[in-house]
Design a protein around this nucleic acid. Structure first.
Lengths: 123, 123
DNA sequence: CCCCTGCTTCGACATATGTCAACATAGACG
DNA sequence: CGTCTATGTTGACATATGTCGAAGCAGGGG
């Protein structure tokens, strides 16, 4: 269960890993920043994708093959389609090992989304 | 007239806004949890809405009237339409004061989204 | 009282999206 | 090779979404 690296989420210094955007409260987003960030949020803006994503994220070992997470109430091609969207958005990565394809979460991108949502401390 | 719904995300009693869902990594989302959370992410999944949201979030005093943030490249009715979506998702609140309508961020909902994106420290 | 300004709602439209069945591809294993 | 299993791709289709112009509503001054 132990692991090797500290996730960038907890790093107080600005991370170069996920370049997209500053916190929402810091300044208005430019059109291009908004375009980039919206793509990530849109990827999580579907119930089926969100379930698939949480299935991968919470799976033992931090990765899951498609066969492990296909039971979300839609057909197999649809699962594949959604996984591709999550991958295109940078939220998941995939790797084929033998017969199966394993998906895992891309921590830096998720951490960037989290930082983007940070609000100002005290109002 | 339209299918405007009561906000499902805000508990009228508890301001503490029951965070809809556990962190993504804790366990797989149920269908209903995914439905609820996806609505929030979807609201931020459009570039124009994200710009409007960051405009409000970063505006001096924590609030902005529509006239202050209408310059995002779409028509004024479209701005109003997007603000309504953000409001329906529970991300913004609005208040009319005289001639102008002011929007501000609902911090508890944004915070809940942030918590949802938290990754495990070492997994 | 009437009209002007700020904002929302309506109606219409083009495009994007989610979904499935059918087909295609990639390895594994006889 | 042939075939089986696990995934991905294609094509089609219904629905959702983003957008605009026009019209409606609410307050504030003249």
């Amino acid at each position: 269960m132990s692991n090797t690296k500290v996730l960038p989420l907890l790093d107080p210094a600005g991370q170069a890993a996920a370049p997209c955007c500053p916190p929402l409260t810091e300044r208005p987003f430019s059109a291009q920043e908004a375009e980039t960030a919206a793509r990530m949020f849109k990827a999580l803006g579907d119930p089926v994708r969100l379930r698939l994503f949480s299935l991968v994220a919470s799976y033992e070992g931090g990765e899951a093959c498609v066969c492990d997470i296909s039971d979300v109430g839609v057909s197999q091609p649809t699962v594949s389609h959604h996984l591709k969207k999550l991958k295109d958005a940078g939220l998941l990565t995939s790797e084929r090992r033998g017969t199966w394809v394993y998906y895992r979460v891309e921590p830096s991108v998720v951490a960037a989304m989290g930082r983007l949502l940070a609000l100002r401390p005290a109002a």
